[in-house]
Write a protein that binds this DNA or RNA. Structure first.
Lengths: 246, 246
DNA sequence: CACGATAGCGTAGGTGATACGCATAAAAGC
DNA sequence: GCTTTTATGCGTATCACCTACGCTATCGTG
């Protein structure tokens, strides 16, 4: 059997035989939990090894016995912060994927910093895999090949993660300067978009799409999310149609 | 007229009246260019203020006369690194958006670090807006409302950016350990995916979707990209159908 | 030619990651 | 119970970076 690298086994909490030696007063899971708490409360920037250690009442360097580097800690956080996936209503794949998407966005939104961490590599942690599985399960009754299911779910994750990032950034900008935010953006566009050079964009700007509170509005963000999601789901439906008719 | 914040005007290179005083030997554009060169050659991590300054033969702190912070420099880079958008073949929106998507991915791929920088906020730089405009122009002959066009193009950008990030990460992992990369992933999945807990994922793993070089393969990445893109485009087509038939 | 505004940049402070090695605690073996 | 073994806790020290501040050099203007 192939030897698995420690950064992967760590995610699953496999501990070979810690028989001898001093009893650890800390586990990687503890550290991850504390780091997530700090990030939730004060943002990702506040997560330093020293800060996390202080949270646990330990010295900074103690953490390095359990975590190879800060990057590894971040990787642990991206798995640890996810809720377990919901049970999907069986039957219609579309309803299933919609439920799934809404649930994953809800899970993301509990941890605003999630959009900022760089995911490195394919899903491998327990929670990530559980979500992956649940997404695939929504497509169970379709005639798709396994590889196609993977492509669809991966694509959806990609899209949702991007959407999260975008909404997070807008929320950020809005929080920093609520009143000016959309005004400034609209003003900047009006100032720089030359109808001769960017006619399509100019038309949009003129139509007032970016005006005032149109840009940032909780309601609208939800609507945008649904719009894009449905586009993607429509695409899946079309693909299924095309596939079964040939 | 609303006063625009300097970080925005800087992107457009508006300089009010730098009449008096010493002549600048450096411009924000120079700095951006140098930073991009460093990132291209040695990765984003190599971009430090000191390194960029050295590249220009200046002292570190000289940069701060032209750029408020490193974050601002990164923002400038994300605009400066983009090629100008291509001229799209008129007529069919689908061909237009496909051309556009492929071109933007090609532009991204010249700068692998692009996937790593955190975009902060809606597109506002000249190149970003040019791309935005060009994307919108592909939808010009459709009966969509302006807001819908924006939603569609934004969604597409979101998806493409995510796709870029994913492929970058895979390429990264592959580069670090070409032989082991997919083997380790497949092995890890086989080890941890319990068919009782994650039946759908187990089925996929058993089907060999993640085996050996299936996971990372230039050919496959391109195919995945096209698959996802077409899903999204199918979704747009379906939306157009639904819309015109009611 | 003196003045004032602006660019260049040296110094220094602060933050943060992390290598290294020793002290310490706990199990294993006698 | 005492020694040996082994892993943990963590103090010290280093290194890399960002950036505030203020001085000096330079150039247009009157």
């Amino acid at each position: 059997m192939t030897e698995l690298p420690p950064e992967i086994t760590l995610l699953w909490g496999v501990r070979e035989t810690p028989r001898r030696g001093r009893k650890p007063s800390l586990t990687a899971a503890d550290i991850t939990r504390a780091a997530i708490a700090v990030a939730d409360a004060e943002g990702l920037a506040a997560v330093s090894m020293a800060r996390v250690a202080a949270e646990l009442g330990n010295a900074t360097m103690a953490l390095y016995r359990h975590v190879k580097s800060k990057d590894e800690l971040l990787a642990l956080m991206t798995d640890g912060a996810l809720d377990p996936p919901p049970v999907l209503p069986g039957g219609d794949w579309r309803i299933g994927l919609t439920t799934w998407s809404e649930a994953i966005m809800a899970s993301f939104q509990k941890h605003p910093w999630y959009a900022q961490v760089t995911i490195s590599g394919p899903p491998i942690g327990p929670n990530n895999l559980a979500w992956f599985d649940r997404g695939l399960s929504a497509l169970e009754d379709t005639p798709l090949e396994e590889g196609e299911k993977v492509g669809i779910v991966m694509g959806l994750i990609t899209y949702l993660h991007g959407e999260l990032r975008l909404s997070f950034e807008l929320a950020e900008g809005y929080r920093e300067n609520p009143e000016a935010f959309s005004r400034v953006y609209a003003a900047a566009l009006r100032r720089f978009v030359d109808p001769r050079e960017m006619p399509a964009l100019a038309k949009v700007v003129d139509a007032g799409v970016f005006d005032y509170d149109t840009l940032y509005d909780e309601q609208d963000l939800g609507a945008d999310f649904n719009f894009g999601l449905n586009l993607y789901l429509d695409g899946i439906a079309a693909y299924l149609d095309r596939r079964s008719s040939t």
